[in-house]
Amino acid sequence: MENSPGPAGRPAETDPRFALMDHAMGYLFSAALRAVAALSVADHLGAGPRPVAELAEAVGADPLNLHRALRLLATRGIFTEDAPGRFALTPAAELLRGDVPGSYRAAVLMLTDRTFWRPAGELEETVRTGTSPFDRLFGMPFFDHFARDAETAAVFHVGMAAMSDPENPLVARACEFPPASTVVDLGGGHGGLLLAVLREHPGVRGVLFEQPHVLREHRLGELGADDRWDLVAGDFFAEAPPGDFYLIKRILHDWDDEQSARILRHCREAVSEHGRVLVVDAVIPPGNDPDPGKVIDLLMMSSLPGRERTRADFDALFAEAGLRVTRVLPTGTRLSIVEGAPAT
């Protein structure tokens, strides 16, 4: 019977109004997650469970309000209240520690940064007008703001690295590169993906193509074979260096179709005769099933001019740039490799 008593005498929440209420207040979970990540709460639970009063003193927080935030997060498996007023880590909360391998804390702080949070709060404007409110809120476009604000840029690049590092080895293994080929990582940030490719494919050479201020923080020295890679400074809207394979990971989804086609066109002009362009992005599936790409798509919509794309969208985009999609490869991550070859 609908709304019959559930646990602890509460009505069973089958009424769709309850679901709508939960969805409408979902942003409070993200807010709580950001708060405890910013306060480094998980770092203070590495040695074991602690009373919330001790945690609050350690991180400089109000005990009652910290308890309330942790109590909400515990309902989704992030932290657990193993005794009244005492909290412990869970596998998800462990990743919020800043001192563990594979820490996801920087990614959480990036995804909940004001550069995403504030425009998302104005999504009604975006849906109504077709344009992002980012320029109005911050006085300039997204990447211009990053170029002028070193602190925000650091949040973005460190956060992207934290989000990408677990994916990069899997993406690298899914790629096929003949020995002695040159792989260009276009807009590759600090070089995490290219580093994984060079480790997985010892016969190839790599080129990290990025803006000068980003290249200064590159990680390719971790390879221990400096003769296998080069740094090239430039703007992918203006050019692409010569190469056999072009990796474009989480770049095209930042830009609209005209801008994305321009990036691909430069790759088409620079690629060798039998080379390939490899776009590593989400590919939105048809139907109503949940998909992470559908969520990220709204993040792009609110703060950037870009979007996530379907297979048909990629076919049209590649054709506009003089390329044809040859196949779409799974990677074992939330991203796929859309492979393109020069159109005949």
Results as ranks from 00 to 15, higher is better:
Leu123Ala: 10
Pro330Cys: 02
Glu81Thr: 08
Ala106Cys: 09
Asp99Val: 09
Val280Gln: 13
Arg114Tyr: 13
Gly9Gln: 02
Met300Phe: 12
Gly85Lys: 03
Pro169Thr: 10
Asp185Cys: 07
Phe177Asn: 07
Asn3His: 14
Leu33Pro: 01
Pro305Ala: 12
Gly60Leu: 05
Ala270Asp: 11
Val338Lys: 00
Val279Ala: 13
Thr333Arg: 12
Pro63Leu: 07
Ala270Met: 08
Glu94Gly: 13
Pro91Gly: 12
Leu329Glu: 05
Ala225Ser: 12
Leu252Ser: 02
Leu208Arg: 00
Pro178Tyr: 10
Ala172Asp: 03
Ala47Asp: 14
Phe314His: 13
Met140Ala: 07
Thr14Gly: 13
Leu64His: 13
Arg265Leu: 11
Pro290Arg: 06
His157Asn: 10
Leu64Gly: 07
Thr152His: 04
Gly189Asn: 02
Glu273Thr: 11
Leu317Asn: 05
Gly121Lys: 09
Ala150Leu: 01
Leu111Met: 11
Arg327His: 10
Lys294Tyr: 10
Val100Glu: 04
His218Ala: 00
Leu223Tyr: 02
Arg105Lys: 15
Arg97Pro: 08
Pro242Val: 10
Ala240Thr: 10
Pro179Leu: 08
Asp226Met: 11
Leu111Glu: 06
Pro330Val: 07
Pro141Ser: 04
Val207Ala: 15
Gln259Thr: 03
Pro49Thr: 07
Asp149Glu: 02
Gly192Trp: 00
Pro51Ala: 07
Leu323Arg: 06
Ser4Trp: 13
Ser303Cys: 11
Leu33Asp: 08
Ile337Glu: 01
Asn168Ser: 04
Pro141Met: 06
Ala8Cys: 12
Leu195Trp: 02
Val279Tyr: 07
Arg324Cys: 01
Val41Arg: 08
Met300Glu: 14
Phe209Gly: 04
Gly6Ser: 02
Asp113Phe: 01
Pro119Trp: 01
Lys249Trp: 12
Glu269His: 11
Leu109Ala: 14
Met21Asn: 14
Arg173Met: 03
His274Val: 00
Cys267Asp: 09
Asp297Gln: 14
Leu304Met: 10
Asp99Lys: 08
Leu304Cys: 06
Asp313Val: 08
Leu96Asn: 03
Arg311Lys: 14
Arg216Phe: 00
Glu320Thr: 14
Leu33Thr: 05
Phe177Ser: 08
Ala120Phe: 08
Ala233Glu: 05
Phe134Ile: 04
Arg228Asp: 03
Ala47Tyr: 05
Ser132Val: 09
Arg265Gln: 09
Gly9Cys: 11
Met160Tyr: 00
Met301Pro: 01
Ala56Gln: 07
Val197Glu: 01
Ser4Gln: 15
Thr326Ala: 15
Phe177Asp: 10
Val271Tyr: 05
Leu215Pro: 00
Phe29Ile: 05
Ala282Ile: 15
Ser4Lys: 13
Thr131Pro: 01
Ala106Phe: 04
His157Gln: 04
Ala180Lys: 09
Ala154Phe: 08
Asn288Ser: 15
His190Ala: 02
Ala238Thr: 11
Val328Phe: 12
Asp185Phe: 02
Gly203Arg: 05
His266Gly: 03
Glu200Asp: 05
Arg219Glu: 06
Arg50Gln: 06
Pro166Glu: 00
Asp297Val: 12
Ala106Gln: 13
Leu208Met: 02
Thr75Gly: 06
Trp255Lys: 00
